[in-house]
Amino acid sequence: LSAAKGGRARLPAESLPAAAAGRKGLAFARFQRLDFVYLNAGIMPNPHVNFKALWHGLLTGKVLHMLTTAEGIMTQTDRLNGDGLQEVFATNLFGHFILVRQLECLLCGNEKPSRLIWTSSSNARESAFSLSDYQHAKGRESYSSSKYATDLTSVVLNRKFNKQGLYSSVVCPGLVMSNMTYRILPVFLWKLLMPIMWLIRFFAKTYTLTPYNGAEAHVWLFKQKPEHLDALVKYHSCTSGLGKSYVEPRKVNGAAASCCRGLG
């Protein structure tokens, strides 16, 4: 969080109590406004790779798409948290949403615009999300569902709060080697696959691989004027085959925009 008095406060958003505590902490600090809130906390519990689907993608020519979006090849086993909510939904989206609502008085109505920057994913897919099961209690792609819901939430927040000076954006850091990634496959296997992944980068520019490259879109957005950004765009961190980092804007799924019009 970037605060008006020159200080910075880092708050966890993994749970609803943490979000409420964060609001109290800022109140004690007597911040007059917040300029930026980066909503980045996320989990992917018990990930499983569907190697059969991956092999099918290889035979049908869809393997590159599957490797860049994890569509059809990645599932998770979710569970309820202490608040009785699905853990992935609560951590990846709902805790952030509650935090934003708690901080609303510090984010809206300021002389300068305030910004929300959500970390989404290229794995966010409409087919994994349902309004009738928005916590994804009945499915096995809770991560994809939560990230698609994040995209929806950002669009709706822009519709409701832009006139009050609050702007929301979503970014995708690409495939980054992190603690979350290392839970999908054993670390030694990732090490063996790394040369192949460097080659794939020539065709799959979202293979950013390092946290530094993955943060490209976050840093780029920090420098932009929010009034000039498209609320229906997700900003992807990309890295060329030769290692050059850049940002590529891509439209949020059309169905997401349509859904948000209905929600609004």
Rank of each mutant, 00 (worst) to 15 (best):
R115M: 09
T119I: 15
T119G: 06
S120A: 15
S120D: 07
S121L: 13
S122P: 06
S122H: 00
N123R: 08
R125E: 10
E126W: 11
S127H: 10
L131G: 08
D133F: 15
Y134E: 04
Q135G: 05
Q135T: 11
A137N: 09
G139F: 11
E141M: 15
S146T: 12
A149S: 11
A149R: 03
A149T: 10
L152S: 02
S154E: 01
S154N: 09
V155M: 15
F161T: 04
Q164I: 10
L166P: 08
V171F: 00
M180W: 06
T181C: 15
R183A: 08
I184L: 14
I184D: 03
I184K: 01
L185I: 05
V187T: 14
L189V: 12
W190L: 05
L193G: 07
I196Y: 10
W198K: 11
L199H: 05
F202P: 03
F202R: 06
F202A: 06
F203V: 12
A204H: 00
T206L: 00
T206M: 01
Y207N: 02
L209V: 04
L209M: 13
Y212E: 15
Y212G: 11
Y212W: 05
N213A: 15
G214K: 02
E216H: 14
V219L: 15
W220K: 02
W220L: 00
L221H: 00
L221W: 02
F222A: 13
F222K: 14
F222M: 09
K223S: 07
K223I: 08
D230K: 12
Y235R: 01
Y235W: 10
Y235S: 06
S237M: 09
C238H: 13
S240R: 07
